[in-house]
Design a protein around this nucleic acid. Structure first.
Lengths: 215, 215
DNA sequence: AAGGGTTTGTGCTCACAATTACAAACTTCG
DNA sequence: CGAAGTTTGTAATTGTGAGCACAAACCCTT
């Protein structure tokens, strides 16, 4: 059976809400409550989960711990994921410094750049290596995911190289519509695109004058 | 007529491809070529554009400049957009330093934080102001978009405040499912969510051993 | 143990988006 | 100018995902 990608995209949201509930010490949660928290209809949650099995109990709901474990297993979050960063300019450095990856099992284990004055530098306990050595390095110590943070004009080349190295997951921060072969999964992170579609809705109604700072 | 949000989300992609074509000196482009570049079917492009008017010419295609202008107008990209950043920790600083916003007409004009040792600091020619003064500051100089880069536990509060200040577009970097009233547009930027859904596809087929670095 | 109250899992329906397909309009070339 | 070749815009079709609604299963109280 083929599971719709939109469903897969929602599962991480569920895991996050479940983690919160777990921290709060909750044992059980209903699709109703989960839905309210996430802004999703309860039916959608139940349907999404039903693609993978029957995890709930009628009259009671879902066991938080059990469902969390199941989702981790389903998504493959029950292991560590090795990542390589390409491009350690401003953006790349920020990504290296980002503390949100490792708690979720994602580790940046290599950093590459093409600029001579960056190669050899140490950033966050990683030595920046030459992009031209990408194939060599990754053949000895493969990674699961490549993070692309190079200027737009080099991005497709870098992606091609990563693919050639067997990397099958790519997180692309460069503002291009990259092409990858079947079987390689690419996600783009582009704040600007998000803004540019948001303005469509903002432009119509004018910026309101603040009535007062009351309260 | 109500235009599907997915259509709106694709328009910025089109503008970007058209900008490239313009730089390359191209006068005219067909939906065919545009589609190949973007990985979208030509029919989809034509249909998307048809929601807004008839911009092409049979037997010829679209005038690059004209279509670009139209899309800019449609999306509201023919003006400047003022943004306020809340949270100048590691992530916030990276956002402030990001150079991809201003070329597209998005300017961060205010920065806020709640931490006393950050308030008053100057970062990139902006003085960090106290989050508690948010309402005051924005009532005098309103912004169009709020960027939220505070820890998860404070994010909803910050978003509520922004909404109260009349901000109707929010870019949320915090890992929470935020709630906003109707009429307020929220987009989340979350690399981790992207990774967590990608792993679903990566986990099945094993990490291939690199055959060789041939080529 | 029995009944009232919950909540799941899922068949069904509906809505909507993607694709197909084609007439109409334009270009180009002989 | 006419015919062959492009390409658009859209009507019609197909495909797909979201929501509804309900039977079945479970909990809890008395």
């Amino acid at each position: 059976m083929e599971i719709p990608p939109v469903v897969i995209d929602r599962l991480p949201l569920y895991t996050r809400a479940l983690s919160s509930l777990q921290t709060e010490g909750r044992d059980v949660v209903s699709s109703q409550e989960l839905g309210t928290r996430l802004g999703v209809t309860p039916a959608q949650i139940r349907k999404d989960l039903s693609y993978f099995g029957r995890f709930g109990k009628q009259g009671r709901g879902y066991n938080v711990q059990k469902l969390l474990d199941e989702l981790h297993r389903i998504l493959g979050l029950d292991r560590q994921w090795r990542m390589a960063l390409v491009g350690v300019g401003k953006l790349g450095r920020a990504i290296l410094g980002y503390e949100g990856f490792s708690p979720q099992g994602f580790r940046i284990v290599e950093a590459f750049d093409a600029s001579p004055d960056r190669i050899g530098q140490r950033i966050n306990s990683l030595i920046v290596k030459d992009t031209r050595d990408l194939e060599n390095v990754l053949s000895k110590a493969p990674v699961d995911v490549g993070i692309v943070a190079v200027p737009a004009e080099f991005a497709q080349d870098v992606i091609d190289t990563l693919v050639k190295c067997g990397v099958r997951g790519i997180l692309n921060y460069a503002p291009i519509a990259a092409h990858v072969p079947d079987g390689v999964h690419l996600k783009r992170i582009e704040p600007v695109l998000a803004l540019q579609s948001m303005t469509y809705y903002l432009k119509s109604s004018p910026r309101p004058t603040i009535t007062a700072a009351r309260g």
